[in-house]
């Protein structure tokens, strides 16, 4: 099982803050994003260039490797401080 989290404007646009996905051998974060995008039009912006991602709470690129049990997060550029 992979836990996927969404934050801020991304969370609002999707209308959900998290979901679980059965792990099916996906290699990278991009594979997971692609799988979600296939669910329908509203998921498409997950593949937009400025969407950031983290694996197990560490910022990474979309080519980052993933494993069963990982926590993956997608979010817009950060604006703290």
């Amino acid at each position: 099982m992979i836990q996927i989290k969404f934050f801020a404007s991304l969370r609002e646009r999707l209308g959900t803050s998290s979901l679980n996905l059965q792990y099916a051998g996906e290699n990278t974060v991009a594979d997971v994003a692609h799988e979600l995008v296939e669910r329908g039009e509203e998921w498409r912006f997950l593949e937009e260039r400025d969407v950031l991602c983290a694996v197990n709470q560490t910022l990474c690129g979309k080519d980052a490797k993933i494993n069963d049990g990982d926590e993956i997060a997608f979010f817009p550029p950060v604006t703290g401080g």
């Binding site: 934050f7 801020a8 404007s9 983290a54 910022l59 997060a73 979010f75 817009p76 950060v78 604006t79 703290g80 401080g81």
Partner: peptide, 12 residues
């Protein structure tokens, strides 16, 4: 503060 503004997961 520069690093925080561009990498800490906070949204305003």
């Amino acid at each position: 503060i520069d690093y925080l503004k561009t990498s800490a997961p906070l949204w305003k």
